[in-house]
Design a protein around this nucleic acid. Structure first.
Lengths: 219, 219
DNA sequence: CTGGATCCCTCACGATACTG
DNA sequence: CAGTATCGTGAGGGATCCAG
């Protein structure tokens, strides 16, 4: 454990000692999407120094959150994946991400989105109850990130890359978040050119119901 | 923000920049129990340096998580409380605490429990569905910490101090966690003297159903 | 007494370079 | 590809001091 102990016999303290170090939960976030190699993690976290990534992976392995597998054949390569215990963090990561998304304005200069961060963002804003009985698919183009969401009766599947035959193709930047947060209406967004649609524009109304960021509570 | 940005336009990154610094979520945990003064927070977090507590409170205030109120009368005193946005972290704190509690063994030397940490631990392990239609009260004595839980049809109220007339008084140390985690049965615990009961011992069986720490998932 | 501010020291973090 | 080595900086830790 790198940081010293908090000195408390308490679940939260122990959790913070496992995954509370800088970068740790972002690594978990990316591994929740799928297992990855060292270099994949680097690509998803461009600002992390390699020694820090290395250190975090070791700590997470020691804490039983990550499992390191050495694939012997073709090329000697290493794969990091979450253990079942690590996967049990999904709910926390999703909820914490949604909490942060509530207060998120425009991107700061230099801030990027990654395919994994958007994947988890879509998962965290997804409302199964709003998607019950619904069968629809979207392709998202956010800058150079392209990914797709397939919704089928309360379940969500987020896939990397385009989706030929998607019901609606949505091209946007951070305006997509403002839409999901209800800060702008779909009509406004289309009218002002904040998003570009290919397909039935009415699909955007449904999108903001299915993917929703709640407002900051006032009480 | 003390730590540098993660450089990602992502809810989780933003959340980590708000409450991801060392000690921050423990401060939030204690404030979730009730508003507190600087010195109360110090008492609940004995290992936190005062400059760090000071810095965290400022950062949390800036992030809209904590509100600082100066009470003018009697003595000039300052009260810190969560904003509604900060209170929206309750769910995350509870779940993260429960996640950490799954893998928690015995206390490390020097580790303490505080009344607030136990309060939140009880809240995080509470299963409303197991308490439906139930009306029962417990007094817990854990070392020098005494607190009580009043359960009434799916709702839980945790109070500091003893509870005269409680249905069951439970005196234990960290064995209480092992009980809630199902690592020992109530019968074992009583037999081996791990807990001391005052009241109907059958109440302990109900306790471990109502307050439950799930096992570490194996898949 | 509360609510901090200040000082100093250390180590974790971050940037860069380099290697099996 | 998957890290390790090196090194500078600044946040965290601990003790002390100070104002209301």
């Amino acid at each position: 454990m790198t940081g010293r102990s908090y000195g408390q016999f308490c679940g939260l303290s122990r959790a913070m000692e496992s995954v509370g170090e800088r970068w740790a939960l972002l690594i978990v976030r990316d591994l929740l999407v799928r297992p990855k190699r060292f270099t994949d993690l680097r690509r998803g976290l461009p600002r992390i120094p390699t020694n820090i990534l290395s250190a975090r992976l070791k700590e997470l392995e020691l804490a039983g959150v990550v499992h390191r597998t050495v694939l012997p054949r073709p090329a000697a390569s290493v794969v990091y994946e979450l253990t079942p215990y690590g996967r049990a963090l999904e709910d926390v990561v999703l909820r914490l991400g949604l909490w942060g998304a509530m207060a998120m304005g425009a991107p700061e200069p230099g801030e990027i989105a990654t395919i994994d961060s958007v994947t988890m963002a879509l998962r965290s804003t997804f409302r199964p109850e709003a998607a019950a009985g619904l069968s629809v698919s979207y392709e998202f183009r956010l800058g150079d990130i392209v990914l797709s969401a397939v919704i089928d009766d309360g379940t969500l599947n987020v896939l990397p890359g385009p989706l030929p035959g998607a019901d609606l193709v949505v091209e946007a930047g951070h305006e997509l978040r403002a839409l999901m947060a209800g800060e702008v209406t779909p009509a406004e967004a289309v009218e002002k050119g904040m998003v570009t649609l290919t397909g039935d524009p009415a699909g955007l109304d449904r999108l903001v119901e299915v993917f929703h960021i709640p407002p900051i509570p006032s009480t």
